[in-house]
Every structure is written in structure tokens, then in C-alpha cells.
Amino acid sequence: MNAPKRHPRIIVGVDGSDSSISALRVARVMAEPLSATVEAWACWDVPAGYGVYLAVGIEGFKYAAEQVLQQALADAFGELPSFVHPRLVRGKPGPVLIDASRNASLLIVGRRGHGSFVPGSVSSACVSRAHCPVLVVHAPEADDEAPDQGAQVGAAVAP
């Protein structure tokens, strides 16, 4: 009996940084010829030391992440392609994306993002621990004429 053909799935870590917007654009270019779906994942969590927010409510953190995700999608694509699906996930980006890589064909992340104490720590963690190939995308240079053409691939790693 033949196993069902698995539809390619590309997961992109999105935090609103220029490199994550470039990662979305690279995912689109890669997904179209493969007939792959792209999942744009924005991770959010309550920052350490903010225990009082657990009692008051955490909706503000989730709302902020949702706004960042929607803006990044608008900046990357304008109109959202039908094969791109936004996903808002609670948790720290590194562990969440590494876990998600178990069921992905490819994980794409930006080289440097927002909100990380150590620049590149999420991409470094994903490269070293993901369960699928990882593509790290650099943001385009400021003087590039076409930002969607200026993305540079920083690393491609197959586990």
C-alpha cells in the first residue's frame, strides 16, 4: 500500500524584524514551485518577572504579537497569498519553532530579530536543534533598491 504523499510545509518565524519579513518573502519564492503551504508563526509569551500580568490578564501581549504578525504579513506580501497561513503561538520562539520543525519540511528564520537578549539566539538555536532543514535569512541592506530581491541566505542546515 502506498503511503499518502505529504504536502510540503514551510514554517517561518515572524517577529516583525526586517530579516523576518525577508524570510517571509523567501518562503513565498520557495513555496510556489513546490506547492507548499507556508505557516507564518509569531510567538508570544508573558515576559519573565511579569507575574502580576497573570492575575490581571495577558491579552495585551497576545494582541501586540498579533499586530506585529499582521503588519509583517502586509509588509512582506501586501495581499496575503492563499497558501500563507498566519499562526499565533504562545511560548518562547526558540523552543516553539524547534518543536514545530518536527512536522515541517523547512524552517525559515531571520538572522536577527526583535526582543531577543542575544542577537541571533533564536536562529542559532533553530540551526543547532531543529528536526528539519533550516534556512537563515539576512535582512536586505538599506541601499538595496528592491527589498524583496535583497534578502540573503545566511545558512542552510540539514539535520
Rank of each mutant, 00 (worst) to 15 (best):
M1Q: 08
N2G: 04
A3H: 10
K5D: 04
R9Y: 06
I11F: 07
S17G: 13
S19P: 11
S22A: 15
A23W: 05
A27W: 02
R28Q: 10
A31K: 11
S35V: 04
A36E: 08
A36L: 06
A36D: 09
T37V: 14
E39W: 09
W41M: 07
C43V: 02
W44H: 00
P47K: 15
P47W: 12
Y50G: 13
G51N: 14
L54Y: 15
A55P: 02
V56Q: 12
G57S: 11
I58D: 01
G60C: 04
F61G: 03
A65G: 00
Q67S: 06
V68H: 10
Q71Y: 03
L73H: 13
A74W: 08
A74V: 10
D75W: 05
A76D: 04
F77C: 13
E79V: 15
L80I: 15
S82I: 09
S82D: 13
S82R: 13
F83E: 07
V84I: 06
R87L: 03
V89L: 03
V89Y: 00
G91C: 07
P93W: 02
P95M: 05
I98G: 00
I98Q: 02
S101I: 13
S101D: 07
R102V: 08
N103Q: 04
S105K: 14
V109F: 06
V109N: 01
R111P: 00
F117M: 11
F117N: 10
F117W: 09
F117P: 04
S121L: 03
V122M: 09
S123A: 14
A125C: 02
R129I: 05
H131G: 00
C132D: 10
V134E: 06
V134C: 07
L135V: 12
V137P: 03
V137W: 04
V137F: 07
H138A: 09
A139C: 08
P140V: 06
P140D: 07
E141Y: 06
A146W: 07
P147T: 15
D148C: 03
A151P: 00
G154R: 03
G154M: 05
P159S: 13
